[in-house]
């Protein structure tokens, strides 16, 4: 039931970036098509102004190079041979690609260097600051560490809730009951997770089984067809992990909720509750309440702590 080893992404190809985000970033490939096979090796975007002046110490050559108003103006002020010289030097550092913002027209030197060295050059109508902001977020996503976890992910009233437990313990039945109550399914049984930034884990399903789940005794069912499209969600941040454990006499159960245990996902600690499964317990209802308690905690209210503080204050007053 352990997590599959996380996959760390070291680089992505320029082609993958272009094909994924051409629409979002309004990218148009204007030269150097063969350069699409190059790799972006750092999840950031560089403005190569210092490099254009010929200063290459700490040049961020692993990043995409963005030419904005400043870079383009500087370049145009250089004579053609100076342009060739400095551009050749930049490209020789094995940069992934060139991007020109605000739909500026690349100079003749830029076109010929891009073609000659097989370096992809893109143009976008976006402003540099918007391109950097948007592009960084998209890169962050592409470079996010990923893993697979065995569990069913649901959106329970805005709280991303991952149900875990041994096979046959009733995860899918519980998920079904939650869907029936109007919550939505993100992934059944196998959840792909990725770390976004340093704070969040986002879960999704494989594309092939999105909106489907397996229900023992009935078979594969389409949640979207049976319960409506609102019951399917593509991805969701994971806020809570619920593990179903088989109840045994004498086992330790959480009784107060004062101690919040956590579950490690790609190095991020997610709040975790363990619910013992016993015949006759309405698991879906318990998960629903667990998610609501978590929602309350996120708004700064901890029922267990507040109750206990009241009790302690009462006892102190009695003395």
């Amino acid at each position: 039931m352990a997590q599959v080893n996380p996959k760390i992404i070291e680089s992505i190809s320029v082609r993958e970036f272009f094909e994924s985000y051409a629409d979002k970033l309004q990218l148009e490939l204007v030269a150097g098509q063969d350069g699409l096979k190059r790799f972006i090796r750092e999840k950031s975007i560089n403005r190569p102004s210092l490099a254009l002046t010929g200063y290459f110490k700490h040049f961020a050559n692993r990043r995409m190079q963005l030419f904005g108003a400043g870079e383009m103006a500087y370049l145009r002020d250089l004579n053609e041979s100076a342009q060739y010289k400095v551009l050749r030097e930049i490209v020789a550092k094995h940069i992934p690609c060139l991007i020109v913002s605000r739909n500026f027209a690349p100079t003749k030197a830029m076109y010929s260097i891009a073609e000659e060295t097989n370096t992809a050059m893109f143009r976008t109508p976006m402003k540099s600051k918007d391109f950097v902001a948007e592009g960084t977020v998209l890169l962050e996503d592409k470079f996010a560490p990923r893993s697979t976890i065995y569990g069913t992910l649901l959106d329970v009233k805005g709280i991303g809730t991952l149900l875990r437990g041994k096979s046959g313990v009733g995860k899918s039945e519980c998920a079904l009951a939650l869907v029936e109550r109007g919550h939505s399914l993100v992934a059944d049984d196998v959840t792909y997770i990725k770390k976004v930034g340093e704070r969040e884990i986002v879960g999704t399903s494989a594309e092939i089984n999105r909106g489907y789940m397996e229900c023992r005794g009935i078979g594969i069912i389409s949640v979207a067809d049976l319960f409506g499209i609102r019951c399917v969600r593509v991805e969701k941040r994971i806020d809570l992990v619920v593990t179903f454990v088989e109840w045994q006499p004498g086992m330790e159960e959480e009784r107060t909720g004062l101690d919040q245990s956590t579950f490690d996902m790609l190095g991020i600690q997610i709040p975790h509750i363990q619910i013992p499964v016993r015949p006759g317990r309405d698991m879906a209802r318990l998960v629903e309440v667990g998610a609501l308690v978590q929602a309350l905690r996120l708004t700064g209210h901890d029922s267990a702590v507040e109750f206990n503080e009241r009790l302690i204050a009462t006892m102190a007053g009695d003395k």
């Binding site: 009784r255 107060t256 004062l258 267990a304 009790l311 302690i312 006892m315």
Partner: peptide, 20 residues
Amino acid sequence: KMGIHARPAAMIVRISNKYN
């Protein structure tokens, strides 16, 4: 000092529930 608040109460029921 704090009396039977949630934690001590949980410890008591953990014992009493062991004896079915």
